[in-house]
Amino acid sequence: MKKGRQSVLLAVFAAVALTVSFLWLNPESGREKRSLIVFSAAGLLKPMDELAARFESEHEVKVILNYGGSGELLGKLALERSADVFVPADQKYMADATGRGWIAESTVVPLVSHVPAIAVVRGNPQGISSLSDLSRAGLAVAMGDPDACAIGKITKALLAKNGISGVDGNIKVIAPTVNQLLLYIAAGKADAAVIWEDLVAWGETSESISVVRIPEEQNIVSKITAAVVSHCAGREDAEAFVKFLASEEACDIWRKWGFKR
C-alpha cells in the first residue's frame, strides 16, 4: 500500500513537472509582455531577423516572425487576420490586401527595392549572360511558381516584357518557394533561375551561386512595402514597427543584406 501511494505521488509530481515545462515552451504568453505578429516574405529572412531583434531591444515588445511565400501569407491573412504587420515581397500583394480591406492604405510604407537577377551555377559554366539566353536549347531552367511566390510572377513578367519565348521547353521545375530555386542552383540540379539579387548577397549562398545582373531597362524592380493589418490587436506597436522598418537605422541593416532603397 505504501509503495502504491509512493508511485501515485511520483505520477502526480511527473504530471506537474510535465505541465510546467509544457507551459514554459511559450514563456511570453505567461508574462505580461506584449507581442507583435509579423507576416514577412521568406526572402527577407536575414534582414528581418536582425531588424526584429533590434526593435525588441529598443521596445518592450516581442516580435513573432512568420515567414512564407507572399501568396501564402496573403492566403493566411484571408483565413485568419491574426497578424499585426504584413511585409510582402512585391507591392502587388499589398495592393491585393488593401483592395480587400485587410490593410488600411494609409499605413502602407515603402521600404526597399527587390531587384530580380539571374542565378547560375558558380562560375557560370553555361555562359549565361542575359535573359534571352534562358531560351537556349538544352538549358535546365528552374522557375518560381507565378501563383505562389512573388519571384515567379516577376519571372513571367520579365520574359513577357522582353519578348522572350521558348523558355517553356527549358523549364524543368516550377517550385512554389524561392528557397527551392536557390537549393536547385546551388546543388547544380538546374542551370539558371530568376531570383532576388539580395538573396545571393548572403555569405552562405554566394559561395555556390553566381549572379548575372539584368540591365535596368530590361528589369522590373519590385518595391517591398510594410503595412499595419486592419483590426490588429496592438496597433501602436505595429505602427512603431513599420516606422522603424523605414527608418535610417533600419536602412543600414537592409543595406548590409544587399537591399537598396
Binding site: G68, E72, D147, A148, C149, K172, P176
Partner: peptide, 23 residues
C-alpha cells in the same frame, strides 16, 4: 519539385493552393 499539374500530388496540391490563397 512540386510543379503544378506535373508533379502535383495531393499533399503538394494542398500546399500550392495555400500558397495561392485558394482555400
Amino acid at each position: 519539385g512540386g510543379t503544378r499539374m506535373v508533379t502535383e500530388t495531393l499533399p503538394i496540391a494542398l500546399f500550392l493552393n495555400i500558397s495561392y490563397g485558394n482555400m
